[in-house]
């Protein structure tokens, strides 16, 4: 978890002390210190800069240790797939296919490969563009086109509320299967497409 304390340097810097408004009394301890600081201004400023750098860098280092870095996360926790939109077949079309697009985003870290995409219904097959395997890539969201091909209308679910996409993700350490549940809009579009296709099955 992250629970870092405030990242603020404490205490005044020597440079600030050197600029106090009331003049030191000559010959006093404070006067001798002020003279020394004035003579060695460059070393003092360099020391102050080093102080600021060390404090800031040290605090950043401490902060980095507390929050898990994206590279430590397994692929399923770095990759996110969201539903974009469907290309529904026209109502009277005689086709077994329907297509939709999803957006894939990946948090920065070591490369992740999308090794496979599938869906769980036996009566439907799936293909993607680009074809798997392909690199997930970091940066802006990547559009993946998915085409579902209906094999047997008698076996497809009429109105499933929570259809998944099953995705196999791979990095150098692990291969993971993870399901992405794309939500109500996806579920409604899939249901509508299946009803349309199965009302006018392709010969």
């Amino acid at each position: 978890m992250s629970g870092v304390g405030p990242v603020e340097p404490e205490g005044s810097t020597l440079a600030r002390d050197a600029g106090r408004s009331s003049p030191p009394v000559p010959g006093s301890a404070r006067g001798r210190l002020a003279e020394s600081l004035a003579r060695h201004r460059r070393a003092v400023l360099a020391g102050a800069a080093a102080t600021a750098l060390l404090v800031g860098g040290g605090c950043l280092y401490a902060a980095r240790e507390r929050a898990p870095q994206p590279s430590q996360l397994p692929p399923s926790q770095r990759v996110r797939i969201t539903y974009e939109k469907a290309e529904l077949p026209p109502p009277s079309a005689s086709t077994s296919d329907f297509s939709f697009s999803v957006l894939l985003t990946t948090k920065s870290g070591p490369p992740v490969t999308v090794a496979g995409i599938s869906q769980p219904y036996d009566a439907i097959s799936l293909s993607s563009t680009p074809r798997t395997p392909f690199p997930a890539g970091t940066g802006p969201a990547r559009r993946i086109a998915i085409t579902m091909h209906v094999l047997d209308c008698s076996q497809v679910p009429g109105n499933a509320g929570l259809p998944f996409l099953d995705v196999t993700l791979r990095n150098t350490d692990a291969m993971e299967n993870h399901s992405f549940i794309l939500g109500e809009r996806y579920a409604q579009d899939v249901s509508r497409a299946l009803r349309s296709i199965c009302a006018h099955p392709a010969r």
């Binding site: 990242v7 603020e8 404490e10 060390l54 404090v55 040290g58 605090c59 401490a62």
Partner: peptide
């Protein structure tokens, strides 16, 4: 600076 690093970061 070393001492401040230990204290300032919590």
């Amino acid at each position: 600076a070393g001492a401040l690093t230990l204290t300032a970061c919590g």
